[in-house]
């Protein structure tokens, strides 16, 4: 049964929960960020209390992303003017708690469409996808200071470097890090675009090659016929012991569930298998997230529904439940 947790101000357009699902930030069309906290996370009460609000941008914030908790309580706001900013909650000297701007990212030529943070053994990495189809990887230089970032790599979301795209216009991008922690884990993420350039669109899995210090595309998650389909959202499932990874990719045709092998072949590519194509939203998919065990996928879409998807004992995927928000 539903329980109301908080209401948002007029003009609120996005929200994001932190790692422990106890803090919520919202971003609004006028560039304001509001922070909500559940005051006692150990209690069963669900209601949230507004603890801070601040003006982060002059333009609208369309997406907020939390930085992994190993780096403090910080968020990245992606803004409609193409810039993005990192904000951090700190208490300095005798001053009260405040949200401080740590870093402002801006590109003159293109807009930032999506940002995701990945926490690897070598430190914090930030992937930013730009409207010209470029992808930039930044590394944090000092784990206690979110001001100091260094550009580590820049590439395009194409499977072979020959087919470099000169001019592209992308509407949206989605990135999902491999959520698995662990020392031996390679840094990897999946990235896709919705653009005017077919080769950029399809979801590709990128992995950091430590030996040569570069990012390599190790898999493409699209059937031959669907490679030009713009991707609305990608979500990499938590893997708590499966012999393969599971990644969901949403396009106009539905939500595809992909299995990704763990061991590369001689070309360094990972095997892929599309195990399901789930139709239900029949339109744009807004948001997708896997549950903590990586077994149930939740999605929302333009049909106004929340849908849960699960595989049965025989590996057949189906809709587990559907919810319709109604006022």
């Amino acid at each position: 049964m539903e329980k109301a947790m908080a209401t948002f101000d007029k003009g609120t357009v996005c929200s994001a929960w932190n790692y422990s699902a106890s803090r919520l930030v919202t971003g609004s069309a006028d560039g304001t960020v509001v922070v909500f906290d559940s005051l006692d996370p150990s209690s069963s009460s669900t209601s949230l209390t507004r603890t801070s609000n601040f003006k982060a941008h002059e333009a609208a914030i369309f997406k907020i992303v939390w930085v992994p908790p190993e780096y403090g309580d910080s968020i990245a706001c992606i803004c409609s003017d193409g810039s993005s900013s990192l904000w951090e909650e700190v208490v300095e000297d005798a001053q009260p708690l405040q949200w401080k701007l740590s870093k402002h990212f801006k590109s003159n030529s293109s807009q930032i469409l999506d940002i995701q943070f990945g926490n690897s053994s070598s430190g914090l990495k930030m992937i930013a996808a730009f409207s010209d189809g470029n992808v930039k990887v930044y590394e944090l230089m000092d784990p206690l200071d979110l001001k100091s970032w260094q550009l580590q790599a820049e590439f395009q979301n194409v499977i072979d470097s020959i087919s470099t795209v000169r001019k592209a216009a992308c509407l949206s991008a989605s990135i999902s890090w491999n959520p698995n922690r662990g020392e031996r884990q390679q840094s990897s993420f999946v990235l896709a675009f919705r653009s005017d350039t077919p080769q950029l669109d399809s979801a590709k899995v990128w992995e950091f090659d430590r030996a040569h210090q570069r990012w390599l595309p190790v898999a493409e998650l699209a059937l031959e016929a669907d490679k030009g389909d713009g991707v609305y959202a990608v979500a990499w499932a938590q893997n708590i012991g499966r012999p393969y990874e599971v990644i969901a990719v949403a396009t106009q045709k539905g939500i595809a569930i992909w299995r990704l092998g763990l061991n590369p072949d001689s070309d360094g590519r990972l095997s892929t298998e599309r195990v399901a194509l789930l139709s239900g939203h029949n339109s744009e998919v807004w948001d997708m997230e896997w549950d903590m065990g990586g077994m149930t996928l939740a999605s929302t879409g333009k049909d106004g529904m929340v849908r849960l998807w699960q595989s049965n004992l025989n590996g057949v995927w189906h809709q587990h439940a559907a919810f319709e928000p109604t006022s």
Binding site: V13, C14, W17, T300, G304, M305, V306, F323, E324, P325
Partner: peptide
């Protein structure tokens, strides 16, 4: 289809979903 009753008057611009711990999820 299960209803989720809320106080926001239509039209709705967007729904955002996030899992909380265990079997509960949050819809914005």
């Amino acid at each position: 289809v299960y209803p989720i009753r809320h106080e926001v008057k239509p039209p709705i611009a967007r729904l955002s979903i996030s899992w909380a711990r265990g079997n509960s999820f949050r819809v914005s």
